[in-house]
Design a protein around this nucleic acid. Sequence first.
DNA 1: GTGCTACGTTGGCCAAACCAACGTTGGTTT
DNA 2: AAACCAACGTTGGTTTGGCCAACGTAGCAC
Lengths: 152, 152
Amino acid sequence: MPETDDTPQPPARLRALASWQANKVSTLGARLFARRMKLSARADFAVLAALEECGPLSQADIGRRLGLDRNDVNGILNRLEEDRRVGRAPDPADRRRNVVTLTGDGRRYLDELQKHTDVVQDELLTALSAAERRQLEALLAKLLGAHRPEPA
Amino acid sequence: MPETDDTPQPPARLRALASWQANKVSTLGARLFARRMKLSARADFAVLAALEECGPLSQADIGRRLGLDRNDVNGILNRLEEDRRVGRAPDPADRRRNVVTLTGDGRRYLDELQKHTDVVQDELLTALSAAERRQLEALLAKLLGAHRPEPA
DNA sequence: GTGCTACGTTGGCCAAACCAACGTTGGTTT
DNA sequence: AAACCAACGTTGGTTTGGCCAACGTAGCAC
């Protein structure tokens, strides 16, 4: 018995479409991640990673660094602050801003998320060799470099 | 004056993450597409392309080909049927199924969507040479080939 | 001081990707 | 033949992401 592969192929028009492919890869990543953690933790990871790498940031700066909307950053920070993973305090130098800082809990949470993310990443890229992974990363980076991260 | 590039870089943890990059590329594609057409037309395009390439299909088959949920396929078909772009009729051979067919209007609509899609594709891939585009397509295809298109 | 801009916040919109459940129908098993 | 299970289309709902609009406050340039 040939163990028939019952996975029908998508139309050629779509298979050749980078935006379609990227979308599939993206939702695949979300699916793999969701098997291990609450899906919304992806956004937490991004924000915490930015804080860890750049030090304290204002909410608007976080948004610019990550290509996220100010409003959405606010929501993520509400979650994180409630769980004591970030601190939020008005900037004495510019009282429009909030200075967001990483707490000890936040750092521990970030480490945990990093582990899961690494595993997911490896699952996602199973089919690719190390060289191919580097190629893919470089190509995507080059593609993204030509565009503004934010809409407006 | 060096014309300071005021685009802050995302953290390295994310820049090296294929799933993050893919997500960014995906939303970028959506943004570019939305500038030309209603965003939901992307899904229409996928369904119409499947019908054009494979001929009449059942709703479940469409979902399998495109890696979409049955429920979502249903919604897309409701839109398309209302605008006379597809026909939906019970399959005489298996009365559980609906046979979905492409109409003349649907074919014309597909051609229009293809044009916009081509333009968007080119905008998205601006930074990449023809060879690089082929490489990217191949790598993404290889990555996707190792995974089931549907969750369950 | 007057305007302009940036900031955080609230609230809402739309689309994608799911999941659960139902009634109908087809095939299989017994 | 009856009982069972699986597939199909449909309805309805949840969560998340990516937006946009508007507000009040605060800084800044003129």
